[in-house]
Amino acid sequence: MLVTLHYTDLAVAALLLLVNGGLSMALDLGLARPLLVAALRMVVQLSLVGLVLTRLFALESPWLTLGAALVMLLFAGQETMARQERRLTGWWSYGIGTGAMGTAAGIVLLLGLSTAVRPDPWWDARYAIPMLGMVLGNAMSGVGLALHTLTATAARERAAIEAQLALGHTRWTALRPILRHALRTALMPTINSMAAMGVVALPGMMTGQILSGVDPGEAVKYQILIMFLISGATGLGVLAASLATVRRLSDRRHRLRLDRLVRRKQA
Rank of each mutant, 00 (worst) to 15 (best):
L2N: 13
L2Y: 14
L5S: 15
H6A: 15
T8E: 08
A11D: 03
L16R: 05
L18F: 10
L18T: 09
N20H: 14
G21C: 12
G22I: 13
G22P: 07
G22S: 11
D28F: 07
A32F: 10
P34G: 06
P34N: 01
L36W: 07
S47P: 00
L51G: 04
V52L: 08
T54I: 07
R55Q: 06
L59Q: 09
E60H: 09
W63G: 15
L64H: 02
G67E: 06
G67F: 01
A68C: 14
A69H: 14
A69L: 15
L70G: 14
V71S: 08
M72K: 12
L74T: 10
A76Q: 03
Q78Y: 06
M81E: 12
R83Q: 10
R87Q: 11
T89G: 05
G90K: 03
W91Y: 15
G95N: 06
T98L: 07
G99Q: 11
G102D: 05
V108Y: 01
L110Q: 08
L111G: 08
V117R: 01
R118L: 08
A125Y: 05
A125K: 00
R126K: 02
Y127F: 14
Y127C: 02
A128Q: 07
A128E: 06
A128W: 03
I129V: 14
P130W: 01
M134G: 06
V135A: 12
A139I: 08
M140K: 10
G142Q: 00
V143H: 05
V143D: 06
L147M: 15
L147S: 07
T149L: 06
L150R: 05
R156K: 10
R156S: 12
E157K: 09
R158A: 15
A159T: 13
E162M: 14
A163P: 02
A166F: 04
G168Y: 05
H169G: 08
T170I: 04
W172R: 15
W172A: 12
A182H: 13
A182Q: 11
A186W: 05
L187D: 00
P189M: 04
N192G: 07
S193C: 11
M194N: 06
M194V: 09
A195S: 02
A196D: 09
A196S: 09
M197Q: 00
V199F: 13
V199C: 08
V199D: 04
G204K: 06
G204H: 09
T207V: 15
K221P: 05
Q223L: 03
Q223I: 00
L225Q: 01
M227S: 05
A233S: 04
A233T: 03
A233Y: 01
T234R: 00
T234L: 08
T234E: 06
A240Y: 09
A241P: 02
A244E: 10
T245C: 09
H254T: 10
R255T: 07
R260I: 07
L261T: 02
R263G: 13
Q266M: 12
